[in-house]
Structures are given as C-alpha cells and as structure tokens.
Design a protein around this nucleic acid. Structure first.
Lengths: 109, 109
DNA sequence: CTAATACATTAGCCAATACTAATTAATTGG
DNA sequence: CCAATTAATTAGTATTGGCTAATGTATTAG
C-alpha cells in the first residue's frame, strides 16, 4: 500500500508555483544558497526560507551549512512517492506497462 | 519548454486529498456517477461536484451525461504534464535515464 | 401530473497558507 | 571590535480554497 502521508506532503509542497520554482532552481544547480535563490524570485528572503523549510520537511531538498551560508541541494529520492503514485493511478502508463517501478528496476537493477 | 500553466493546474488539482481520492476512485472504475462518488466520500454531493469541476478543468476527467445521471471517467492524458515535469525535474530518474519520455517511446513506439 | 432523484451552482463561513516586515542569531571582512 | 552579510523565525495580514446548506434544473418513476 502506498504511503498516503508521503504523497500528500510531496503533492502539497509542489503545488505552490513559487515553491516549485525554488525546487526547480535547486535541481538545476548543484548547490545553491538562499541569497541566490532569493535573487529574482519575486519574494523576500523570509519567504524563501519558509519554502525551503517545507521542501526540506517533504524530503525534497537537503542542506549543508558552511560559514554563514547554507547550501541547498535536491534530494531526488523525495520524489519517489510521486513516482509510486503515478505507477498506481497514472492510468495511461499503468495500462501500458502494468507497473512502472518494476519496469525501471528491470532496466537498472 | 514545459507548459507552466498545465503543470500548475494538475499539481494544484491533485494536491487536495479529497479531490485526489475522487480521482483515484474514478481511475479505479470504468465509469462512475456522482452519487456513487459521494457515497463514502465524507463530504456532501455539492463538494463532490465542485471537485469534479476542478478535475475536469485540469483535463483529468471527462463526463458523459445520460438521463439524469452523469458518468465520469478518467482522462489519462491529463497526467501528461506531470510526466513531462518528472522527466525534466525528477533528478533521480533524469540522471539514470536522461529522458524518461524518450525511454518510454523506445519501449512502446 | 407529482414526487423523487441526480447533479450543478451559489453564497457564506472557516481554516489553511503565502506573504511582508521586523527581529534574532551567527558568521565574516576591514 | 564593529559593521555588514546570511539565514531563520515570528507576528500579523490578506488571500485562497474547501466545505456546508440551500436552491435551481432536469429527468424519471408511479
């Protein structure tokens, strides 16, 4: 059975456009600081920190503190619940491949 | 480039647990009416209709009116934006397969 | 024809939440 | 040191959004 709480957290976290944009920028860069994320985000630094907290709680990002900087990086495994959900309820894919996860494991064991 | 509006709609729509549950039930059944969806949903019929409206606007479900009943069915293509997004920003899968969509097309052309 | 059923829609309420502005804490450069 | 930089946190505000209750509309049963 699928972990309802995990999917809930991930979906809910990625639903907000601003927060999703933050995540996308983190994914796009190896590591990135809060100031850099704030730059051109359209919101204040405080708002960015709040979004980062949500992303962290959802398991989508990880942090590394160094000096007065905090570097954020993407935590890809955090998207696993979404993949699971897709393979279960994504009819289109489900119909074609029965189980996406199984398929992927076969390809890359 | 990815259609930001489409992803936004799909993510936002699936973020709510009640609405997602409705979608999952629709996926699970070939066709299902509003009364059936209301039964055991924990919310009123009006709420269900509202959720169905959202799901329809997001392109996730389609309807077929017959007499005084309206049958809803899943529209799998509606999840395409989510798949696209995953293949772009789902680092885990991205790293392993470069492009999930390409992979799937190779398997089932 | 009338009552009941199925569904959509609306107004109004309440909780959740994204944002700002301000504060705090920690680190570093001059 | 001291001022500046980086980041987190908090209180307060405004908006969003999901819910109910009620109403409206169409269809079917008796």
């Amino acid at each position: 059975m699928i972990e309802a709480a995990a999917i809930n957290a991930v979906m809910r976290t990625l639903a907000d456009p601003t927060r999703r944009a933050v995540f996308e920028r983190i994914v796009g860069s190896d590591e990135i600081t809060v100031v850099e994320l704030t730059r051109g985000s359209g919101v204040t630094q405080g708002a960015i920190s709040q979004h980062l907290k949500s992303l962290k709680q959802a398991g989508l990002v990880a942090e590394r503190a160094q000096g007065r900087n905090v570097f954020y990086r993407a935590q890809p495994e955090g998207l696993a619940p979404l993949v699971d959900w897709m393979s279960h309820y994504g009819v289109f894919w489900h119909d074609r491949f029965a189980d996406l996860r199984t398929l992927l494991k076969e390809i890359d064991p």
